[in-house]
Amino acid sequence: ARTGRLYDGWLPYPPDPADYRTGLHDIHQAATAAGRTPEAITPALFVTVRIDDDPRTARAALDDYARATYGMPLAELEKIQAVVAGTAEQVAQRLSRYVTAGARHLITRPAALNLRAQREQMERVAALIPDLTTPSPPRTRVRPGQ
């Protein structure tokens, strides 16, 4: 409700795109009730991403990242945060669900534990940008890194 009344952006990280859609709907209702247009609020998503040629390798790397960064296994982290791992096609499909749910900016964090791997992951995510745009403006922007 506060976002709808006061803020110009929203940056959640729900693990389920359906929850994203519901939250954005609630924000739009609050904005309208406050005399604001829903378009005054930019919907974004914060998501940790790992792309590999083998989906099992991607999940294993994301699990390593979750344990190193949060001290918990991926199975626990993905219950509370938006995390996506898989092939480029799988990651694009999952991120597209958030775009369909209303996300217009995707802030991605590479699930990589060293600089070389971070750079490689950022390049892989950047390659997905053309596949993650909305059919009409505003365009979705993917910002690899933090």
Rank of each mutant, 00 (worst) to 15 (best):
68 A>V: 11
12 P>N: 15
51 I>E: 01
21 R>W: 13
11 L>V: 11
117 A>H: 10
25 H>W: 14
66 A>R: 02
112 A>K: 09
136 S>I: 11
73 P>G: 03
29 Q>P: 05
26 D>K: 10
125 V>S: 02
35 G>S: 03
78 E>K: 02
143 R>D: 12
53 D>H: 07
115 L>R: 15
111 A>V: 10
107 I>K: 13
43 P>S: 07
34 A>E: 00
83 V>F: 03
132 L>F: 10
10 W>L: 10
131 D>R: 13
71 G>L: 06
66 A>P: 01
115 L>F: 09
88 A>D: 00
61 A>G: 14
9 G>I: 08
74 L>N: 00
109 R>L: 14
139 R>H: 14
7 Y>C: 15
7 Y>D: 15
48 T>F: 07
44 A>E: 07
93 Q>R: 02
123 E>P: 10
91 V>G: 05
94 R>G: 08
118 Q>I: 13
132 L>K: 02
48 T>C: 09
123 E>W: 07
38 P>D: 02
72 M>N: 00
81 Q>Y: 05
119 R>P: 11
8 D>H: 15
83 V>T: 06
6 L>N: 11
63 D>C: 08
102 G>C: 03
58 A>T: 03
67 R>L: 04
58 A>Q: 00
119 R>L: 15
55 P>T: 02
66 A>E: 00
27 I>C: 03
53 D>I: 01
135 P>F: 09
24 L>M: 07
104 R>V: 10
33 A>R: 12
105 H>Q: 15
15 P>T: 11
53 D>L: 07
77 L>S: 01
61 A>I: 13
105 H>M: 14
3 T>G: 08
53 D>R: 08
5 R>Q: 11
43 P>W: 06
92 A>H: 02
143 R>V: 12
132 L>E: 05
105 H>S: 14
143 R>P: 04
101 A>L: 04
85 A>S: 05
122 M>I: 05
104 R>F: 05
9 G>F: 12
2 R>L: 15
121 Q>L: 05
120 E>G: 05
131 D>N: 13
109 R>N: 11
134 T>C: 10
49 V>E: 02
2 R>S: 13
41 I>F: 00
18 A>L: 11
69 T>I: 06
27 I>K: 04
99 V>N: 01
34 A>P: 03
14 P>D: 10
104 R>C: 05
56 R>C: 12
16 D>G: 09
100 T>N: 01
7 Y>T: 15
7 Y>K: 14
19 D>V: 07
134 T>E: 06
80 I>K: 11
73 P>R: 00
11 L>D: 12
82 A>D: 00
76 E>D: 05
15 P>V: 11
16 D>Y: 10
83 V>M: 01
128 L>S: 04
77 L>Y: 01
74 L>D: 00
77 L>C: 00
109 R>G: 06
76 E>A: 04
66 A>W: 01
18 A>D: 09
92 A>L: 00
54 D>R: 02
102 G>T: 06
133 T>Q: 14
122 M>G: 07
78 E>C: 01
99 V>H: 04
121 Q>N: 04
12 P>Q: 15
144 P>A: 08
117 A>K: 10
125 V>M: 05
140 T>W: 09
73 P>K: 05
127 A>Q: 02
29 Q>K: 15
93 Q>N: 02
32 T>Y: 05
79 K>M: 08
111 A>N: 03
81 Q>E: 06
46 F>Q: 11
10 W>C: 12
98 Y>D: 04
10 W>Q: 10
13 Y>H: 15
145 G>C: 08
136 S>T: 14
22 T>N: 11
